[in-house]
């Protein structure tokens, strides 16, 4: 399980201004749980994720994370901009997490090939990522995260840079992968629909300094399909999240749900 308690996070901007990104954020994620985090731009969602994964140190509070097995990184990140290494082949990119954990080349490549097959990139294994489209790069980033064997995946708007149609496809793909693998996932997203489709719980964060203002349990049974988005229950839940978001940021209308306004979270800048 992954738990954070009373996380505070301060940044000093290049102008010397002190910004508080997170204010007393606590959360606990069960093993195999899929938690989505929504909130206004710049509310510190990305910072929270980075603190959870150990990329940033919190100014106060503590993060507890079950240590990984010796060769497996404890968490694997998936970033919005894919973080694909242009000078490594698709296969070497997929194997990157394992290689960095010290796993040998042959074993890493074998695991990578299996995951490339599962995300439909087998025929590009020897190509360089320059030849891949945005959706394919995102699938590569997912393959890398899954292939690393890490039990915890931290995703920072992993689908935010994709066009709407590809995004819908990737949501379904991700849903399928997760339902087969049952990783522990914390995913930051701008899209309420995405959060409700994928998540077991949706955390709503307030504007900076970020705090968790609401937690919404998503009752839909697993395995889910994208079809649940058309049900009245889904629509009611969507309204509920939108209201929670509006409440978290007085006077400013809630964000649109289609993710069209997705942009990089300013909280880490």
């Amino acid at each position: 399980m992954l738990a954070a308690e009373d996380i505070d996070c301060y940044f000093v901007s290049p102008e010397g201004e002190v910004l508080q990104a997170l204010d007393q954020v606590s959360l606990a994620v069960e093993d195999g749980e899929f938690v989505c985090v929504v909130g206004p731009s710049g509310c510190g969602k990305s910072t929270l994720l980075r603190v959870l994964g150990g990329l940033d140190a919190p100014s106060g509070g503590s993060v507890r994370l079950r240590p990984g097995l010796s060769v497996v990184p404890p968490v694997a990140f998936v970033f919005q901009d894919f973080g694909v290494l242009p000078w490594l082949t698709v296969r070497a990119n997929a194997a990157f997490g394992l290689r960095m954990a010290g796993v040998g080349r042959r074993l890493s490549d074998r695991v990578a090939d299996r995951w490339l097959g599962r995300v439909g990139l087998s025929e590009f294994a020897d190509a360089y990522p320059g030849r891949l489209s945005g959706g394919m790069r995102q699938r590569l980033a997912l393959a890398r995260a899954f292939a690393s064997g890490s039990p915890v995946l931290l995703m920072d708007e992993p689908l935010g840079a994709l066009d709407p149609q590809t995004r819908v496809q990737m949501q379904e793909h991700l849903l399928e992968l997760w339902q087969q693998e049952h990783k522990t996932v914390v995913m930051v997203t701008h899209s309420i629909d995405e959060a409700l489709l994928l998540g077991d719980r949706v955390l709503v964060m307030s504007d900076r300094p970020g705090t968790v203002t609401d937690t919404i349990t998503v009752p839909f049974p697993r395995p889910r399909t994208a079809g649940i988005q058309d049900t009245p229950a889904f629509a009611r839940l969507r309204v509920r999240v939108r209201q929670a978001l509006r409440g978290s940021r007085p006077g400013i209308p809630a964000q649109r749900t289609d993710g069209a306004d997705a942009r990089t979270d300013g909280g880490t800048e």
Partner: peptide
């Protein structure tokens, strides 16, 4: 972004 990714995988 590449450096960040590398760091996140413990490189």
């Amino acid at each position: 972004r590449v450096l960040e990714t590398a760091r996140s995988y413990g490189a």
